[in-house]
C-alpha cells in the first residue's frame, strides 16, 4: 500500500510513455533510411562480422555490410508492416466482435464459427499457404497476417463486449432506437479501450514474430528489402563470434515488442 517516493514518481511517468514511444518507433521507421550512414546493400568492409568500431557503430555483417544501416532500414519495414497488420486485424476484430456481442443469435454464430475456422489453422501454415498461392509481396504479407490475427482480436473483443452490452446504458441507447454503428463506437468501445489496447500490443508482437519467422524461412520480405527477422537469420553464423550483427537485430526485436507492450498495458481509457 505504501509506495516509496522514487517508485511513485516512476509509476507516474508510465502513462505518458505510450504516445511518445509509438511516435519514436514510427519516426525511426520513416527516417531510418535517411539516417543510415551507408546504403544498406553496399559492401563497405573487407572484414565480416566486425566488432563495434567508430566507423561501423554496430560492426559489419556476414558480407561486410554496415549493420547499423541495415538495422535502420530493417526496423522500418518490420514496424510499418506489423503496424499495418495490427491496425487491420484489430479494427476488423474489434468491430466484428462488438457486433457479434450486440446482435447475438445467428450473426454471432456465423461470425464466431468463421473465426474459429481461421484460428484452428496454425498461423505459420496459413501464412505459408498464402505466400505460396499469391507470392511474397508486401500487400500479400499484410493481408494474410491481418486475416490470421483477426480472430484472436475478435474473440477478446467479443468477450469484453458481452459484459458491456448487457449494461443498462446500451439498453437505453437501443430503446432510443440508435443505429448499431453508433452503439459500437460511442457506447461500447470507449468502455473497453484499456483491455483492447493490451490486446493490440499482443497482436503486434505476434505479427513481429510471424514476419520474423517467415523471413527466417526465407519467404518473408525478399532482398533487397530487409526486416529484423531476416537480419537475425542471415547473420546467425555470427553468433559463434559474438558479433553485434546478430545480437543487435535480435535485441531490437525484444526492445520493440516488450517496450510497446509495457506501454500499451499501462494505457487507461476514460473509464479507467
Amino acid at each position: 500500500m505504501t509506495v516509496a517516493p522514487f517508485a511513485r514518481r516512476w509509476v507516474s511517468v508510465i502513462p505518458r510513455i505510450p504516445g511518445s514511444l509509438i511516435l519514436f518507433w514510427l519516426l525511426l521507421a520513416l527516417l531510418g533510411p535517411v539516417l543510415a550512414p551507408f546504403a544498406p546493400g553496399e559492401v563497405v568492409s573487407r572484414t565480416v562480422f566486425a566488432p563495434i568500431s567508430a566507423h561501423h557503430l554496430l560492426g559489419t555483417d556476414y558480407l561486410g555490410r554496415d549493420v547499423l544501416s541495415r538495422l535502420l532500414c530493417g526496423t522500418g519495414s518490420t514496424v510499418l508492416l506489423c503496424a499495418a497488420t495490427t491496425v487491420l486485424a484489430c479494427t476488423g476484430g474489434v468491430f466484428l466482435g462488438i457486433i457479434a456481442a450486440l446482435k447475438q443469435g445467428l450473426t454471432d454464430t456465423l461470425l464466431s464459427r468463421f473465426m474459429d475456422g481461421v484460428i484452428s489453422i496454425p498461423s505459420l501454415l496459413s501464412a505459408l499457404v498464402a505466400v505460396a498461392a499469391f507470392g511474397s509481396s508486401v500487400p500479400v504479407l499484410v493481408l494474410a497476417m491481418s486475416l490470421i490475427y483477426m480472430p484472436g482480436s475478435y474473440r477478446t473483443c467479443r468477450m469484453l463486449a458481452l459484459s458491456i452490452v448487457r449494461r443498462d446504458f446500451v439498453l437505453a441507447a437501443q430503446m432510443r432506437g440508435e443505429k448499431s454503428g453508433y452503439i459500437v463506437l460511442r457506447e461500447v468501445l470507449p468502455n473497453m479501450t484499456g483491455p483492447v489496447m493490451a490486446d493490440v500490443g499482443l497482436r503486434f508482437i505476434y505479427a513481429v514474430r510471424l514476419l520474423s519467422n517467415l523471413s527466417f524461412l526465407g519467404v518473408g520480405l525478399q532482398p533487397p528489402l530487409t526486416d529484423l527477422g531476416s537480419l537475425t537469420r542471415e547473420n546467425l553464423l555470427g553468433l559463434v563470434y559474438g558479433a553485434p550483427a546478430v545480437i543487435a537485430p535480435a535485441l531490437t526485436i525484444a526492445v520493440l515488442t516488450v517496450g510497446l507492450n509495457l506501454a500499451l498495458d499501462s494505457y487507461k481509457g476514460k473509464a479507467g
Binding site: 443498462d168 439498453l171 437505453a172 430503446m175 470507449p190 468502455n191 481509457g269
Partner: peptide, 14 residues
C-alpha cells in the same frame, strides 16, 4: 424508462 442502478445506466466513458 429510468432504471434502478444508476451505476449501470450511464455510460462511464461519456
Amino acid at each position: 424508462l429510468v432504471a434502478q442502478n444508476a451505476d449501470l445506466v450511464l455510460n462511464p466513458a461519456m
